[in-house]
Nucleic acid binder design. Sequence first.
DNA 1: TTAACCAGATTCCTATATGATTTTGGCGCC
DNA 2: GGCGCCAAAATCATATAGGAATCTGGTTAA
Lengths: 240, 240
Amino acid sequence: MPPRQSSDTSRGKAAVSDVYASMRAAILEGEMAPGARINIDAVSRSLGVSQTPVREVLQRLEGDNLVVYSPGRGYSTTPLLDLVELRSLFEFRLLVEPWAARAAAVDRLANPAAALEKELTGFRKTMKVTKDLRQDLVAHDTRFHDTILAASGNSVVRHAFGQTHCHLHTFRLYPADVDGAITVAEHSAVTDAIEACDPEGAEAAMTRHIRNSFDRFAQAFEGELAPLEEVGPPRKRIIK
Amino acid sequence: MPPRQSSDTSRGKAAVSDVYASMRAAILEGEMAPGARINIDAVSRSLGVSQTPVREVLQRLEGDNLVVYSPGRGYSTTPLLDLVELRSLFEFRLLVEPWAARAAAVDRLANPAAALEKELTGFRKTMKVTKDLRQDLVAHDTRFHDTILAASGNSVVRHAFGQTHCHLHTFRLYPADVDGAITVAEHSAVTDAIEACDPEGAEAAMTRHIRNSFDRFAQAFEGELAPLEEVGPPRKRIIK
DNA sequence: TTAACCAGATTCCTATATGATTTTGGCGCC
DNA sequence: GGCGCCAAAATCATATAGGAATCTGGTTAA
């Protein structure tokens, strides 16, 4: 973490805000390894602030599910997702994002097609020149999906989605380079349907995108949990 | 707020935990009015702790959407929901809860029917003797819905739902007594479908329950935003 | 009457200090 | 060689202190 880089000339007041941004970025970029203990004293000295604002930030990061707390033992970064959690996360995305895409594909000024096109065009250019494709892909993906959630007009859904920090958690699973081209193609399909004000098409395109995305990330667990052998439908009721 | 009532004999270590519970309860029970400023010094003295743990708790409560922060001006309790936010909240509930009810209505040991029956039976008894029906109804409703979310097996969905604090926010709108009988009847319908391992029926019953619940809470805004006059479908496209 | 201004007091926000708990390293014992 | 115990060090968690910003009320000028 860089030493504070305060927004106003140091010794100011925005310590908590700066520390939050720094620590969030450090966790997101893997600078703090998943599951590692966090030494409050080290962090505070590294950022040039006292321990008080660091502790406040840690409380907030716990609400963001970016750190976990053990009473008396302090804070650690959250460990990597296991396959069960990854499935839960993508089931949640399948619940809210296709709905949001449908809601965004309306013939109103809230339609986000222009912003999505701009985002896609910008990222296509970035892809050709960037030295850190993975980082840029995460940023693009985050903006793209949030734009659609915002256009849904439902702040509760948007906030709940944001709080899952799905991009952070999923991309921590995937240290290898990914083929941004596939993601861009799927994003294009979603954008086209939204631009055409086609709710059904937008919902379907988003559903396909998320399912494909899950398949790509689930490769990190290749072979870990082999599917159960087929047992057929249950023979009799076990409840009641 | 009572003066600390620490879990271990006071002067211990669980200050943050205690303070969090106290402040959360104070906001939930309306002891701290919606939109009111929070005086950190007053709270810390009232609870018998220093300002440090109080400030940490406030950061956490902000993540819970129970307080809002203005830099330099301190913290306030979140204001009451307006109609737009109430609609957003119930749209979110309509996205996740019917799905959870469907997921819970399975012929597996995760089926929560027994726990739901127990919860309902207990509340029916409580209704007859309680002096604070509203408080008990909130508690019952919270437990009932969380039980179903938990039984869905999806921790992300359950957590996202919990973070909305929908019971807190909606019941703050409703200082008047409510007829718990209606809620109990709808809960019974949901429970019966889950007990019968009827996913379609459980989903439908939950959808009906949430829609009815919205109608009841929306009465708080009676006449505030009259529906727009019917304008018919739009004549021509305005996007692109 | 209204608006602007300005000290005094309050309140926020960070820093530092201190007691309590956990971790670490080393030694003896089995 | 491995395991358990104990003191020292490190770390956590809260309390207290002080600088900086904001709010309050009273006064003056337009």
